[in-house]
């Protein structure tokens, strides 16, 4: 039986996430992961690879990415140049086929983990161009007339930030999971995993401030898990006293080192106004 994923010492996975990951592994289907930025979508693939001891292939998508680039590319320009120099290798077209991430993953000796990161950044047609590859885990190289088949169906993770709607035909082939923003106790577990020796007092104050900031109405960009972790790292580095954090309980000052949490000048401004209002109200 295949091994199951159950979170790692560095990654807290909720029950629903584990169910989704294990279902995808068992049935060999791609798993589409969505969620707020900074909730650990990309990290999930790395942790699955680490905990199951599988090689990881990462394919990061940009707005200019083409589906073909993940399979292979035909380097026509260097062949053209070589032909003008009269080199012998020009005769074999296979010398100019550059393998993409998908091909590499298909050739792996053990079952690999393949991450297709931020698929929504690419062109709208991008997912449609990968349908057959995802379904059958094979593709055809026209230049050399060769069929590339996956030795082992890769554990495939696809992340999306919801910038574009994905086509139905593509979604049909995937499992889907939405990573919710963690609730307070999960968050506590996550922070503990990253900062094992953290003082309980500081943690409590930091989390309280964090959720307070998150719940402020009108924020443009809500801070997420990764921002919280950065912020705690900063608090530790600067050796901030929990008492300082408590001072902002009544909104008298901006939270210490707020730059790690608020990433937008309008948001900082909003907070300054709140602080101002609270001072005046007293």
């Amino acid at each position: 039986m295949t091994r199951r994923f159950g979170g790692t010492d560095r990654y807290i996975a909720t029950d629903d996430l584990m169910t989704a990951v294990n279902a995808a592994i068992t049935l060999g289907r791609p798993l589409l992961i969505k969620g707020e930025p900074g909730t650990g979508k990309t990290q999930l693939a790395q942790e699955i690879a680490r905990s199951l001891e599988r090689p990881l292939y990462e394919w990061h998508i940009k707005s200019t990415s083409k589906a073909q680039q993940g399979l292979y590319e035909y380097d026509a320009v260097s062949r053209l140049r070589d032909s003008q120099l009269g080199e012998a290798r020009v005769q074999d077209i296979a010398n100019y086929i550059v393998k993409g991430k998908l091909w590499e993953a298909f050739e792996s000796q053990v079952q690999p983990v393949l991450l297709i990161d931020e698929i929504d950044k690419a062109d709208i047609e991008f997912p449609n161009d990968l349908l057959r590859e995802l379904d059958r885990m094979e593709f055809y190289v026209y230049e050399t007339r060769e069929l590339v088949k996956a030795r082992h169906r890769p554990i495939m993770l696809i992340t999306s930030n919801n910038e574009k709607e994905l086509p139905d035909a593509f979604l049909r082939r995937c499992f889907f999971h939405y990573i919710r923003f963690p609730d307070e106790s999960t968050m506590r577990a996550i922070v503990q995993v990253h900062f094992p020796g953290l003082k309980r007092e500081l943690l409590a104050e930091a989390l309280r401030t964090f959720y307070e900031v998150r719940e402020t109405p009108g924020l443009k960009k809500k801070p997420s898990t990764s921002e919280l972790l950065d912020w705690i790292k900063l608090l530790l580095a600067e050796d901030i006293d929990p008492a300082v954090l408590r001072a902002n309980e009544e909104r008298k000052v901006l939270p210490a080192l707020h730059g790690a949490l608020l990433k937008n000048e309008q948001d900082v401004h909003l907070f300054e106004q709140l602080v101002f209002l609270h001072r005046r109200a007293r």
Partner: peptide
């Protein structure tokens, strides 16, 4: 429930 949701729903 989790499994059914993973398989059947494709949009949060």
């Amino acid at each position: 429930y989790f499994l059914a949701r993973t398989c059947l729903v494709k949009d949060e």
